[in-house]
Design a binder for these strands. Structure first.
Lengths: 200, 200
DNA sequence: CATGTAAGTTAACATTGTCAACATATGTTT
DNA sequence: AAACATATGTTGACAATGTTAACTTACATG
């Protein structure tokens, strides 16, 4: 927080500052209802300044959601380099990485798949969002080539993976996977079911 | 639309009227940003009248979301009585019913799983939401008893089903399952993967 | 140095959720 | 039947939000 006097009239890189502030708030408060004015306040700037960098609120949200997909992609990549794919359960680390991302960034994850960032299709069809999906597809294709994964249309399998992981993430974010209601390790069981469907 | 003159001061059953109007609008406009005032307008009532029936906006949304879960439960039940569970693919009709529900009520489905209806946990932990989940669990347990489904913790399997179906529904709602990108019938492929993981 | 442009500010506007104060039906008690 | 309490409407206000217009300031380029 800098004083109003020593702060220059021009921020310098307000666009990046806005995004970073938003990401920071999203990590602090699970259920922050995104308001542009609060964002501007926390960034130390007037409430109309963001409009010099984003057409409207949805555009800002879409940008943040896409950054979320980039982060998710990195998390997936990191997990799969951690262990060479020679095991039958080679998918597990990546799956856990996916769920871990959702767990660590609940509000961001919600934004990524919610309808608040404008047309969801516009977000998900962006290259940055597809990049994360591509990681899964490539991984499965390599698994098939190595004979670890049943030879089917990899895109269909990837869809199954993605869908199941997304569904699991949502259920967990909503606190719906209570031990008493769904068993000790429902997540592991669900993953096992998926793997059994994929294994060669 | 009745004239203001012949309309009685008291609506009679405004609570139900509000809910029905909201459901109607949700079906017309995919991306309606829910405003209480428009809802009151379309119901032919003053903008503050809804507060006599709902504590706040989130309460109204939560109620509507729960009605969505009831409808989903009915759709699932209807699908599974349509075909006795003697086939290996006995799950398919129910799965298609789930996806069909999401396809027919995209905005409502979004509301059911979004964060706009207050704390999502409060919605999903309600008995009406759990009822829909219970349908899946019971179905799997019967399948296990009939020797059609691998004997595992049914709750874990149900979690897998639910998660995969929810994920598929979201992907499809976002128009992410484009034929050119994900193959001709990615949905069928994903379901097949799930069934192979469940089958005995 | 002049001047155009990018990036800020302030001031307004319509809309929204919400609340308080008031009005009108309905039902219950005496 | 009269009186009153309660449920259910209405109106009018309030602060907050997204957004736009008009204005200012810094910087860059001729």
């Amino acid at each position: 927080m800098q004083d109003a006097s020593d702060r220059p009239y021009h921020h310098g890189d307000l666009r990046r500052a806005l995004i970073e502030t938003a990401l920071a708030i999203l990590q602090e408060e699970r259920g922050w209802q995104f308001t542009l004015r609060e964002l501007a306040r926390r960034a130390g700037v007037s409430h109309a300044a963001p409009y010099k960098h984003f057409a409207d609120k949805a555009a800002l949200l879409a940008e943040i959601a896409l950054i979320g997909f980039e982060k998710l992609r990195e998390a997936l990549l990191a997990a799969q380099t951690a262990q060479p794919a020679n095991d039958r359960d080679a998918l597990l680390p990546a799956a856990r990485a996916y769920l871990g991302f959702a767990r660590r960034n609940p509000a961001l994850y919600r934004l990524m798949f919610g309808a608040e960032a404008g047309e969801p299709a516009a977000v998900h069809l962006d290259d940055r969002a597809r990049g994360a999906f591509a990681v899964v597809v490539e991984f499965l294709e390599r698994g098939q080539a190595a004979g670890l994964i049943r030879k089917r249309e990899a895109l269909g399998q990837a869809t199954a993976c993605w869908a199941l992981l997304h569904g699991l993430a949502m259920l967990e974010l909503d606190g719906l996977l209570l031990r008493e209601k769904v068993g000790e390790d429902a997540v592991e069981a669900a993953l096992a079911t998926l793997l059994e469907g994929l294994a060669a």
